[in-house]
């Protein structure tokens, strides 16, 4: 474990806590894409298949359970909670995310890390996470005003993978000395997708203005 990976995991955890806080305290999920949340549930379920078969550390098991549990909880709130589900902007959440699932699955079949079920699904989860934020970014562009908690959620979610890129560079030079094409390229794509959001988020923070993405 290195400082970049720990910071990345904590930032990822914080993003989920911020989102859960927003939904629980405001009893609203306005501005949040249910489709992105569904994609993340799929990412965690297909990535952590080895949860009960391979033990790394208490930390590893705990965090996997927390990520699966919180992402399912957020999905449940947005889909089934009687008050929260009324605030879901269904008409704005229009991205065809099933295309993302199919595309990433085909990619994982063509370019898997290894031709076994768990490795193809692991690769699928890496590819899917890279594009999982797209429905959310599209929804933000359609939203007139983005509330602080939603902006912070997306920023933290993007920042965590950027920290993971630093973690991979660190591990390359200190322990692995091998190129990890699949997670690295996917992580680069994932972080690049946040580029313009990062720009407008930092601008709004510096100018103390409301966050607004150009349509």
């Amino acid at each position: 474990m290195n400082v970049f990976r720990l910071a990345g995991d904590m930032t990822h955890l914080l993003s989920i806590v911020v989102l859960l806080l927003k939904i629980r305290t405001t009893k609203s999920c306005a501005g949040i894409s249910l489709k992105t949340q569904e994609l993340y549930v799929l990412v965690f379920l297909t990535r952590y298949l080895d949860l009960f078969t391979r033990y790394f550390s208490v930390y590893n098991v705990l965090m996997k359970l927390i990520f699966i549990g919180t992402s399912v909880a957020i999905f449940w709130y947005m889909r089934y909670h009687k008050v929260v589900k009324q605030t879901y902007s269904k008409d704005l959440d229009s991205f065809r995310h099933y295309h993302l699932i199919l595309g990433c699955f085909l990619m994982a079949l063509l370019i898997p890390f290894d031709f076994s079920v768990t490795e193809v699904l692991w690769t699928f989860s890496i590819y899917l996470e890279a594009v999982a934020i797209l429905p959310q970014l599209v929804l933000l562009q359609k939203s007139r005003n983005i509330d602080n908690l939603t902006g912070n959620y997306v920023f933290l979610l993007g920042a965590y993978r950027a920290l993971y890129l630093l973690n991979w560079i660190y591990r390359f030079f200190t322990e692995i000395h091998k190129i990890r094409w699949i997670p690295w390229i996917s992580g680069l794509v994932q972080t690049a997708l946040y580029a313009d959001f990062f720009y407008y988020y930092i601008q709004s923070w510096r100018k103390h203005e409301e966050l607004k993405l150009p349509a």
């Binding site: 990976r5 590893n60 290894d114 692991w122 690769t123 091998k178 997670p183």
Partner: peptide, 10 residues
């Protein structure tokens, strides 16, 4: 086969 890279990561 070999286990995928950085499997100890989240």
């Amino acid at each position: 086969g070999p286990s995928s890279p950085s499997k100890d990561e989240l």
